[in-house]
């Protein structure tokens, strides 16, 4: 499995996704036996605050023998007077094999990839995609449910602003799963139906018969923008409460990319309960990111 870049899951073939799953499974089983990135540098270029994704990529790179260059820009490059491409040219001059980039604008990773020779891994571009998250979520579900063809997965929350939702949508539909997107009307873009999703506002309807429900983090500042109802109403209508979890299929799983707002989109009891895959997602994130970096090496 070789990747030139990892910019988006949209457009990836099923075989490519499954090859990454196999690589991640091998790495989880046996650990990284070779050090394909020994003597190489992986540059983490973060234009947005991130703790877990960045740490996960850092550990993954180290596990493959790479040294890690961590570069974070407070605010955007423009506020520092340097253009995005100038920042990237500076990083690239240090000779990394792979640049892992997170940026607040949609399309930023693909834009950078057009201008550099090394591999670019998108660690989240605006509201577009977060492909490593989509792949690790798909991998986690694949491990638990087997082949995802015909499985029903609901994604609930702020779909409009979620790159996690888009990457999962493309990953899961490529694998033959049925994806239902759900959230409050202003946060539920009807246009994603064109990508093969069912778009349903009512949560109880959306999660009916689901094999897994993926809860998204709600950003509380959206409430001040009039995009969300009050927290209590949000929890009642779009939260994975204990009561709602009890009505799920017995085998149904609950996921969350973190960080969780306990008691808002996800009740603590459910996050810590037997259905929850939250920590397994984090563990799988590490091996999936190893698989991604290995494929880019």
């Amino acid at each position: 499995m070789k990747l030139r870049h990892l910019l988006a899951i949209e457009g990836m073939r099923r075989e490519e996704i499954e090859a990454l799953f196999s690589a991640a499974a091998r790495l989880r089983q046996a650990g990284p036996t070779a050090k394909p990135l020994a003597g190489q540098t992986v540059a983490n270029l973060f234009f947005e605050p991130s703790t877990r994704t960045r740490a996960s990529f850092e550990l993954a790179a180290q596990a493959l023998g790479a040294q890690v260059l961590n570069w974070s820009a407070q605010g955007s490059s423009t506020t520092k007077g340097e253009t995005l491409l100038d920042t990237v040219r500076n990083i690239v001059a240090m000779g990394p094999k792979v640049v892992v980039i997170r940026h607040p604008l949609s399309g930023a990773a693909a834009f950078v990839a057009e201008h550099v020779q090394c591999a670019v891994v998108n660690a989240g571009d605006g509201q577009h995609e977060h492909p490593s998250q989509g792949l690790l979520d798909g991998f986690t579900l694949h491990n638990r449910l087997g082949a995802l063809s015909g499985k029903r997965i609901a994604i609930v929350g702020d779909i409009r602003h979620s790159r996690v939702a888009r990457s999962n949508l493309h990953c899961l539909t490529a694998l033959g799963a049925e994806v239902v997107l759900c959230g409050p009307p202003p946060l539920l873009p009807a246009g994603l139906a064109a990508c093969g999703a069912r778009v349903i506002c009512d949560m109880d309807q959306a999660i009916e018969g689901a094999d897994a429900v993926m809860m998204l983090r709600i950003q509380k500042e959206r409430q001040a923008q009039g995009l969300l109802p009050k927290p209590e109403e949000y929890r009642r209508r779009w939260g994975m409460t204990q009561a709602r979890a009890a009505k799920l299929k017995e085998t149904a799983l609950v996921m969350h990319p973190g960080p969780i707002n306990r008691g808002l989109e996800l009740d603590g009891e459910v996050a810590d309960g037997p259905r929850s895959l939250v920590l397994e997602q984090v563990r799988n994130g590490l091996v999936m990111r190893q698989a991604i970096l290995e494929a880019c090496a």
Binding site: E10, S106, G107, D125, G126, Q127, H128, E129, R160, R163, R166, P189, A190, G191, L192, A193, A194, C195
Partner: peptide, 12 residues
């Protein structure tokens, strides 16, 4: 403008 293209690209 609002529509599937903006939604897919994650553009406001």
């Amino acid at each position: 403008g609002e529509g599937p293209t903006a939604d897919r690209l994650g553009l406001a």
